[in-house]
């Protein structure tokens, strides 16, 4: 499988950016059908912020600096996710691939993307550190495993240096600088790039950029969601006078037992 990669010569780098569609951050979650499903009525969808603000914009910067030549966007979903893909295309990217399937878990998603990625020699695969809907943060690392390539998560800075990449990433209580050869999957977070607003030129170009639907390989999910629940409402607040911080400390000690 390794032979599929490594065609990278400076300036011809191909980047795959994984994007997913998620409900807008201001969405209130409402359940339906005996709590077995989320009520999506009236939900506005956006590109997962980590995918858009960091992974995609990082790819665009690499292209603008002449390091990368092609940026492909990939997502898994039925035709109704296309408006969100075009939102991403409005920021940039040369073409988009939609794996025409509803995915039920990270394993399905990663398998679909891995199968497609094998057919194209990507030098760099970028994704967000997690999607803000199911918060698994699993697809990137799983994809790297399925492709037998390296994975670096929680990246805060990415520099391409010839055929290798220098990545700063978050570690517990600090930061680490890693180096590894391409190809690699990197999961991005804040720091990698600055969020952009799509401009008129990009919005108008989004319609004309190729967006192709790809038939998925057959793969079954390995998890299922049986039910959802909403967090219980906090039981009443205790208000403490601003001049009585001793009382607050005492409550934190005797009642909350955290001091």
């Amino acid at each position: 499988m390794v032979s599929l990669f490594g065609r990278f010569r400076g300036g011809y780098m191909k980047i795959l950016v994984c994007i997913s569609q998620v409900p807008d951050t201001s969405t209130k979650i409402v359940l339906k059908d005996d709590n077995t499903a989320i009520n999506n009525q009236g939900t506005t969808y956006i590109v997962n912020p980590y995918d858009e603000w960091y992974a995609l914009v990082c790819a665009l910067e690499l292209k603008e600096s002449g390091t990368a030549s092609d940026i492909h966007l990939i997502t898994v979903g039925k035709a109704d996710v296309e408006p969100v893909i075009r939102k991403a295309l409005a920021l940039g990217g040369d073409e988009a691939i939609r794996i025409d399937a509803d995915s039920n878990d990270p394993f399905q998603t990663a398998t679909y993307i891995a199968e497609y990625a094998k057919s194209v020699s990507y030098d760099l695969i970028l994704c967000g550190k997690e999607s803000i809907d199911y918060n698994n943060g699993a697809v990137g690392a799983m994809l790297a495993g399925l492709l037998d390539i390296d994975y670096i998560g929680f990246a805060t800075d990415i520099q391409i240096n010839g055929s290798s990449v220098i990545v700063k990433r978050e570690i517990e209580g600090g930061e680490e600088t890693d180096a590894c050869s391409l190809p690699v999957v990197i999961a991005c977070q804040k720091g990698v790039a600055e969020a952009r607003i799509p401009n008129m030129r990009g919005i108008m170009a989004a319609r004309t950029r190729p967006l192709k639907a790809v038939t998925p390989v057959a793969v079954d999910p390995v998890t299922e969601i049986l039910a959802y629940e909403l967090p219980p409402a906090k039981a009443g607040i205790k208000l403490i006078e601003a001049d009585n911080m001793d009382e607050l400390v005492a409550l934190l000690h005797t009642e909350a037992k955290v001091l």
Partner: peptide, 17 residues
């Protein structure tokens, strides 16, 4: 249409940011 809504979103994001 979709394009007009994208333009509108760009305006809204520009104001917000």
């Amino acid at each position: 249409n979709e394009e007009q809504l994208m333009i509108a979103e760009t305006c809204t994001n520009f104001l917000a940011q």
